[in-house]
């Protein structure tokens, strides 16, 4: 399975958000999208999920134009997890929410197979005991897991997650990203994940795309993309990048031209260098 994004441009009204974005992802891969606020990460993800249609450019899924997919095929191919904060308008149980993900597969009745998939999705995310709870009664982290389980219930080839870890505690962050990694590696899915946390992005992604003002500023292996120079240019932040057994350790030190504080003097000496730390 090959996901090809060719020359995608998008604008809200007259404000261009994405300009000529081109890249390929293959199944088995986990792609991270990083970049500062307003760099177009979420917009790009929404174009990939066919929630938005690119103004210019084409997206191919195995040489099939994404724009040509008909209704439910979209949901069977692409599983989108919205950013935290989008909930249900009306009371809804966890099980009902997850069954929404079966919409692309069913017409009216919920069948045996739908319930099997739903129970596996519940179990996969450790939500088994919460099945008949109201969504509104859960913590934001649990709710986020429910939304991931809903995408899982779609049984898609491509998973598209917008900031899945933003409301999760440390343990849940690791759990969720490890699950996504497993989906990519063991189940040959294709995972695209928008992340703010550069450390997590570097650690779990096979490849990274760094967006800057709607364009791809850098793409490739995490070490190459998240260099101190790139972080300085794109984020306007001095950072120390260290490499250890678990991937990159990125410590943002101070904003360029920003107010100074106590630790910075020491930090500045090392900033701008990639350190190799023996772990």
């Amino acid at each position: 399975m090959l996901f090809q994004i060719k020359g995608v441009c998008f604008s809200y009204g007259s404000v261009p958000v994405l300009e000529n974005v081109t890249f390929n992802v293959q199944s088995g891969e986990m792609l991270g999208i990083v970049g500062p606020n307003g760099s177009g990460k979420s917009t790009l993800l929404r174009c990939l999920a066919r929630v938005l249609k690119p103004r210019v450019g084409t997206i191919f899924l195995d040489r099939k134009n994404l724009a040509d997919l008909r209704g439910r095929e979209v949901g069977r191919c692409l599983g989108y997890v919205p950013p935290p904060g989008t909930g249900q308008a009306f009371p809804c149980t966890v099980l009902e929410t997850i069954l929404q993900g079966r919409r692309p597969h069913l017409t009216w009745g919920v069948g045996e197979r739908d319930l099997v998939v739903a129970s596996r999705a519940l179990d996969y995310l450790g939500l088994t005991d919460l099945g008949d709870r109201q969504l509104g009664e859960l913590s934001s982290g649990q709710r986020q897991k429910v939304f991931i389980a809903r995408a899982l219930a779609q049984e898609p080839v491509v998973f598209l997650l917008d900031e899945p870890t933003a409301t999760l505690d440390v343990r849940y962050q690791l759990e969720v990203l490890a699950l996504m990694q497993e989906l990519a590696r063991s189940h040959q899915r294709l995972v695209v994940v928008v992340l703010h946390d550069l450390n997590l992005a570097a650690r779990y992604s096979d490849h990274l795309i760094l967006l800057h003002e709607g364009r791809i500023f850098a793409a490739g292996a995490p070490e190459a993309v998240l260099s101190p120079e790139n972080i300085r240019t794109v984020y306007g932040v001095e950072a120390v990048v260290a490499k250890n057994r678990w991937g990159l350790q990125i410590t943002p030190v101070a904003p360029l031209n920003g107010p100074a504080n106590g630790d910075i003097l020491e930090g500045k000496e090392m900033a701008g260098k990639t350190l190799a730390v023996q772990a």
Partner: peptide, 21 residues
């Protein structure tokens, strides 16, 4: 349209991704 309305309850973006026009 019952199912489409159900899915729309989860938000427009999710509904669009699930194949609802």
């Amino acid at each position: 349209f019952a199912w489409d309305l159900n899915v729309l309850g989860a938000g427009e973006e999710v509904a669009a991704n699930l194949g609802v026009n």
